[in-house]
Deep mutational scan, measured.
Amino acid sequence: NQASVVANQLIPISTHLTLVMMRSEVVTPVGIPAEDIPRLVSMQVNRAVPLGTTLMPDMVKGYA
């Protein structure tokens, strides 16, 4: 099972991601792979992401 990136807190819209905001967890459905966490740092979310939500490629500007 592959770990995905999950929000560690509420991430407001247009926030630049930091390591503190993300954790890796095995979830269904599978989202952005956990090994991409370093790549996600300083990218922006294009919507509010609630605590515990799996980050999907379409939620992060410039990821997909």
Rank of each mutant, 00 (worst) to 15 (best):
L10Y: 13
M56W: 05
S24L: 05
L55C: 02
L55W: 01
P57E: 07
P29G: 03
V26L: 12
V41S: 02
L55K: 01
V45D: 02
S4H: 01
V20N: 10
G31L: 02
G62I: 04
T28F: 11
M43S: 06
L51Y: 15
P50G: 13
L55F: 14
L40E: 00
T53C: 08
V5K: 01
A34P: 05
D58T: 10
Q2D: 15
P12V: 05
S24K: 09
E35V: 12
V49Y: 03
Q9H: 08
L10H: 12
E25I: 05
V27M: 07
P33N: 10
E35P: 07
R47Y: 08
I11K: 00
P50H: 08
I11C: 03
D58Q: 11
L10N: 15
N1G: 15
V27N: 01
P38F: 10
M43H: 07
A34G: 15
L55P: 01
R23S: 10
H16W: 08
L19Q: 07
A64R: 12
D58E: 12
M21K: 01
A34C: 08
P50S: 13
M56R: 08
V41Y: 03
V5S: 02
P12Y: 05
I32F: 02
R39C: 12
A48Q: 13
L17D: 03
V6D: 01
V60A: 02
M21G: 02
M56P: 01
T18E: 12
I11E: 00
M56V: 07
A48I: 14
S24N: 08
N8E: 07
A3D: 10
A34K: 06
S42V: 04
M56Y: 10
T28G: 06
L19E: 09
L19I: 11
G31A: 03
R39A: 14
P50W: 05
I32A: 02
I32P: 01
S24H: 08
A7R: 02
Q44L: 07
Y63T: 03
P50T: 10
V60E: 03
S24Y: 10
V30T: 14
P33E: 05
A34V: 10
P38R: 08
Q44A: 15
G52V: 02
S24E: 14
V30C: 12
M21R: 00
A48F: 09
Q44C: 11
Y63K: 03
L17K: 00
V60M: 04
V6C: 05
P38S: 12
I13D: 10
M22D: 03
P29T: 05
I13M: 11
Q2A: 14
P57D: 05
I32W: 01
G52L: 04
Y63W: 15
A7N: 01
L17A: 00
P12H: 09
V26C: 10
V26H: 12
M21W: 00
V27S: 05
S42Q: 10
S14K: 11
V49L: 08
A3L: 11
L40F: 00
V60P: 00
A3T: 08
V20M: 14
G31P: 01
L51M: 13
V49F: 03
G62M: 08
I13N: 12
V45M: 05
T53R: 11
V5C: 06
Q9E: 13
V6L: 07
V27I: 07
V20K: 12
V49D: 03
M22H: 02
S42D: 15
A34M: 08
A7T: 10
A3H: 08
D58H: 09
G62E: 09
V20P: 12
L55S: 01
E35D: 09
S42R: 08
S14Y: 14
K61Y: 13
R39N: 09
R47P: 02
N1L: 13
A48D: 15
L19C: 13
D36V: 07
M21T: 03
N46E: 09
V60H: 01
Q9D: 07
M59N: 05
M22S: 02
Q44T: 15
